[in-house]
Every structure is written in structure tokens, then in C-alpha cells.
Amino acid sequence: SEEEEEEWRRAKERGEEIIILGILWKPNDEEAERRIKEALRRV
């Protein structure tokens, strides 16, 4: 969703871990980033 995407962007800017759509994303975690982008597209 729009607000999840916004939340994720803010976490990326701050360089902090975030759990979004049930996926743990850490800074520079390209695999998780790809999965999150896929999940955001499906929503």
C-alpha cells in the first residue's frame, strides 16, 4: 500500500531495519528489497 511504501522509504533513508509485509528488511538487503517490491505491487 501507499503508506507501507512510504514507511519503507523512510526506513531506507534512516538506514534502519524494518519489518514490512512480513518481510524483515535490513539496509542493503537486495533480496528482501526485491521481495518487498513484488509484494507491494501485488497489494
Score class of each variant (00 low, 15 high):
residue 40 L to T: 01
residue 39 A to M: 09
residue 31 E to F: 04
residue 34 R to S: 10
residue 17 E to A: 12
residue 15 G to N: 08
residue 36 I to H: 02
residue 33 E to V: 04
residue 9 R to A: 09
residue 11 A to I: 14
residue 10 R to Q: 10
residue 32 A to L: 05
residue 3 E to K: 15
residue 31 E to L: 06
residue 26 K to Q: 07
residue 8 W to Y: 07
residue 34 R to I: 09
residue 34 R to C: 08
residue 8 W to N: 02
residue 9 R to G: 04
residue 26 K to F: 04
residue 20 I to T: 01
residue 35 R to V: 04
residue 21 L to P: 00
residue 31 E to M: 05
residue 41 R to E: 14
residue 25 W to Y: 04
residue 29 D to G: 02
residue 27 P to E: 06
residue 33 E to N: 07
residue 28 N to V: 03
residue 9 R to K: 10
residue 26 K to V: 13
residue 37 K to D: 12
residue 19 I to Q: 07
residue 28 N to G: 15
residue 37 K to W: 14
residue 42 R to A: 14
residue 6 E to N: 09
residue 21 L to W: 06
residue 3 E to V: 14
residue 9 R to V: 10
residue 13 E to T: 07
residue 4 E to F: 15
residue 33 E to G: 04
residue 29 D to S: 05
residue 16 E to I: 11
residue 36 I to K: 02
residue 20 I to Y: 05
residue 10 R to P: 03
residue 2 E to M: 14
residue 31 E to K: 03
residue 33 E to W: 09
residue 22 G to H: 03
residue 12 K to I: 10
residue 20 I to L: 05
residue 7 E to M: 15
residue 1 S to P: 12
residue 39 A to C: 12
residue 5 E to G: 05
residue 41 R to P: 02
residue 10 R to V: 10
residue 2 E to D: 13
residue 12 K to W: 14
residue 2 E to C: 08
residue 7 E to D: 12
residue 13 E to N: 07
residue 16 E to K: 09
residue 42 R to E: 12
residue 1 S to Q: 12
residue 38 E to V: 04
residue 36 I to F: 05
residue 14 R to M: 11
residue 36 I to D: 02
residue 39 A to S: 02
residue 15 G to T: 03
residue 6 E to Q: 08
residue 9 R to L: 14
residue 8 W to F: 14
residue 12 K to L: 06
residue 10 R to W: 08
residue 36 I to L: 06
residue 30 E to Q: 11
residue 22 G to L: 09
residue 41 R to V: 09
residue 3 E to P: 13
residue 27 P to Y: 03
residue 4 E to M: 15
residue 43 V to L: 15
residue 33 E to Q: 03
residue 32 A to G: 02
residue 32 A to H: 00
residue 14 R to S: 11
residue 13 E to H: 06
residue 4 E to N: 11
residue 42 R to P: 07
residue 21 L to N: 03
residue 27 P to K: 03
residue 37 K to N: 13
residue 12 K to M: 13
residue 41 R to Y: 10
residue 23 I to G: 01
residue 37 K to T: 12
residue 7 E to F: 15
residue 23 I to F: 04
residue 20 I to W: 05
residue 9 R to W: 10
residue 1 S to N: 13
residue 20 I to K: 01
residue 43 V to Y: 14
residue 22 G to A: 04
residue 37 K to G: 07
residue 25 W to A: 00
residue 24 L to M: 07
residue 41 R to K: 14
residue 18 I to K: 07
residue 23 I to Q: 00
residue 14 R to N: 11
residue 5 E to Q: 08
residue 17 E to W: 13
residue 21 L to T: 01
residue 41 R to M: 11
residue 29 D to I: 00
residue 14 R to H: 08
residue 31 E to I: 07
residue 41 R to G: 10
residue 4 E to G: 11
residue 31 E to D: 13
residue 20 I to E: 00
residue 9 R to C: 00
residue 30 E to W: 10
residue 32 A to K: 01
residue 35 R to K: 13
residue 25 W to P: 00
residue 24 L to S: 05
residue 33 E to H: 04
residue 39 A to I: 08
residue 21 L to S: 04
residue 42 R to K: 14
residue 1 S to R: 12
residue 28 N to D: 12
residue 39 A to D: 01
residue 5 E to P: 12
residue 30 E to I: 12
residue 10 R to F: 07
residue 36 I to A: 01
residue 11 A to N: 04
residue 13 E to D: 10
residue 7 E to H: 12
residue 40 L to P: 00
residue 35 R to F: 04
residue 5 E to I: 12
residue 35 R to P: 00
residue 2 E to N: 14
residue 15 G to F: 07
residue 5 E to D: 10
residue 39 A to V: 06
residue 27 P to R: 01
residue 19 I to K: 06
residue 2 E to R: 14
residue 43 V to C: 08
residue 24 L to N: 04
residue 4 E to A: 15
residue 3 E to W: 14
residue 9 R to Y: 11
residue 34 R to K: 11
residue 28 N to R: 06
residue 11 A to G: 03
residue 40 L to M: 07
residue 17 E to P: 15
residue 22 G to K: 01
residue 18 I to M: 05
residue 40 L to R: 01
residue 36 I to Y: 02
residue 29 D to T: 01
residue 10 R to K: 12
residue 1 S to K: 11
residue 11 A to R: 06
residue 23 I to A: 01
residue 9 R to F: 09
residue 43 V to R: 15
residue 3 E to H: 13
residue 24 L to T: 07
residue 12 K to V: 10
residue 41 R to Q: 13
residue 5 E to K: 04
residue 37 K to P: 00
residue 17 E to Y: 09
residue 2 E to I: 14
residue 38 E to L: 04
residue 12 K to N: 06
residue 1 S to W: 15
residue 20 I to A: 01
residue 8 W to E: 03
residue 18 I to T: 08
residue 11 A to E: 02
residue 34 R to D: 07
residue 10 R to D: 08
residue 28 N to H: 09
residue 17 E to C: 10
residue 16 E to P: 02
residue 10 R to S: 06
residue 18 I to Q: 03
residue 14 R to Y: 08
residue 28 N to Y: 12
residue 19 I to T: 13
residue 8 W to S: 01
residue 2 E to Q: 14
residue 9 R to D: 07
residue 19 I to N: 05
residue 29 D to K: 01
residue 11 A to Y: 08
residue 36 I to S: 00
residue 25 W to K: 00
residue 37 K to M: 13
residue 17 E to T: 12
residue 4 E to W: 15
residue 8 W to G: 02
residue 36 I to Q: 01
residue 34 R to W: 12
residue 24 L to F: 08
residue 30 E to T: 09
residue 36 I to V: 09
residue 43 V to H: 15
residue 8 W to R: 02
residue 13 E to Y: 06
residue 25 W to V: 01
residue 6 E to S: 08
residue 32 A to Q: 02
residue 29 D to F: 04
residue 37 K to R: 13
residue 38 E to M: 03
residue 31 E to Q: 07
residue 3 E to S: 14
residue 11 A to V: 08
residue 35 R to S: 06
residue 18 I to A: 08
residue 9 R to S: 08
residue 42 R to W: 11
residue 28 N to E: 09
residue 14 R to K: 14
residue 39 A to G: 04
residue 30 E to A: 12
residue 23 I to H: 02
residue 34 R to M: 10
residue 31 E to T: 07
residue 6 E to G: 07
residue 28 N to M: 09
residue 19 I to S: 06
residue 26 K to N: 05
residue 19 I to A: 06
residue 40 L to N: 00
residue 2 E to T: 15
residue 39 A to Q: 06
residue 5 E to H: 11
residue 1 S to L: 15
residue 37 K to S: 10
residue 15 G to S: 07
residue 5 E to T: 10
residue 33 E to L: 07
residue 20 I to R: 01
residue 43 V to T: 07
residue 10 R to Y: 08
residue 38 E to I: 05
residue 13 E to G: 04
